[in-house]
Nucleic acid binder design. Sequence first.
DNA 1: AATCAAAATTAGTCAAGACTAATTTCTGAA
DNA 2: TTCAGAAATTAGTCTTGACTAATTTTGATT
Lengths: 155, 155
Amino acid sequence: MTSKKATRGKASGATARPPKNPPKSPRPPQSAAVEDYLETILQLIDTKGYARVIDIAAGLGISQASVTNMVQRMDAGGLLKYEKYRGLTLTAEGRRLGENITHRHSVLTEFLRMLGLPEDIVYRDVEGMEHHISPTTVAALVRLNAHLKSSRYRP
Amino acid sequence: MTSKKATRGKASGATARPPKNPPKSPRPPQSAAVEDYLETILQLIDTKGYARVIDIAAGLGISQASVTNMVQRMDAGGLLKYEKYRGLTLTAEGRRLGENITHRHSVLTEFLRMLGLPEDIVYRDVEGMEHHISPTTVAALVRLNAHLKSSRYRP
DNA sequence: AATCAAAATTAGTCAAGACTAATTTCTGAA
DNA sequence: TTCAGAAATTAGTCTTGACTAATTTTGATT
């Protein structure tokens, strides 16, 4: 608990603690939502060869309008290249980020399965937790997974 | 990834997936933010005997105004009893919830420490992840922690 | 009892991200 | 080539949860 971080607004806390406030330009996002989009987009591209707005929307379970809006901001943020009505492609950075996220997702999923949890719970917990795990922790989980596997851990 | 859940607005997805839309009354909240508040409030009460707005604000690193606002909504949600300018007390439900949350926090912290992670990373990852772990997973982690301890797991 | 600083509250904003409705563009038949 | 339906975009809202500024209440001190 503790610490909220301020949605991103104009922190400078009257009573607040760390007033850290990055200048920030127009609209480049960097959030849990963006990670979900990247993950879905990468999966679509690697699966069907392209990522249409409608498929991203279906994959995330949200409206097409929401996707259009976010995709435009992600273009502004340099995560992907977007041409209205034409389609989109990930930039090098977007792909790299997407692959990190996907890896993290896999590691976490493997870990929870190792605990003997039912698939639906694994799925939901991974969904929620994945955006909050540092690279260091991911690495530690990779090692733990290997250990649990080799030691034949039975929940 | 996949699935966003819609902030809570008026889902009914044009393209969206599960249009589940609970009626919802005035303002009863139930979110990660509320969990952070409950955790801080419970800690203050069990430590100092009471929880003042200014201390909650300091604990969460946000403004007093934000706390006042949330505390009023939590009162409406039945998590605590609040009297303007006078103070607040947790309801039975609020305390029960707070204790669950605190327990989850401890279990998760112990787990990450077991992985040999540095304290600052443990702290931040717990902050982020704790709101997304199901009771079932918490139980599984308790067992895993015991196992790792007895097997003298060394990262 | 009067006063003043600390604590709390109110009022009004803001940003993210989702939504609906309406409009525009694209595309595959006919 | 035309056109209807599918896909995408725009415009405008809404909710959550933070923020600042201004105001009010409380409580300790004189």
